[in-house]
């Protein structure tokens, strides 16, 4: 059976760290995501975009990591933006009220241009 892991592809554009998520972000895979994000913050990254274009699934475990990263970045003068969400994933962010403090853009280009 197909493995349902998470793949996190990190790239840089205009000094912004972009994390493209592929697969499923759940209680079992969120630790890997957290390690990657916080590794980047520790290395000095202050501008981040999480690209959801190829993410199939998220639960509160994934939201927890994004909240933690948003708090940490705000504390250190940085910023996190989200982009390219499927409508049903965006709905989870809206229900949780996260869209009130983390900007969500329709496309990666719009997110990059916002910095």
């Amino acid at each position: 059976m197909e493995r349902q892991k998470i793949e996190i592809i990190e790239t840089m554009r205009n000094n912004v760290s972009i994390f493209r998520l592929k697969g499923r972000l759940d209680s079992n895979t969120s630790q890997e995501f957290e390690n990657k994000i916080f590794g980047a913050i520790q290395s000095g990254s202050r501008s981040m975009i999480i690209d959801f274009k190829t993410l199939d699934y998220i639960s509160s475990a994934g939201l927890r990591v994004i909240l933690k990263a948003a708090k940490e970045l705000k504390h250190s003068g940085g910023k996190i933006l989200l982009c390219s969400m499927e409508s049903y994933i965006r709905e989870v962010f809206e229900i949780a009220g996260f869209d009130s403090f983390i900007p969500i853009f329709p496309t990666l280009d719009e997110a990059v241009n916002h910095f």
């Binding site: 509160s60 939201l63 927890r64 909240l67 708090k71 705000k74 989870v92 229900i95 403090f101």
Partner: peptide, 20 residues
């Protein structure tokens, strides 16, 4: 769900989403 980012807690969110 309406507090500022700094005060936002993650606990209870899973059950809240389930109810929703």
């Amino acid at each position: 769900l309406e507090c500022a980012l700094e005060d936002r807690k993650i606990g209870g969110l899973g059950v809240y989403l389930a109810k929703h």
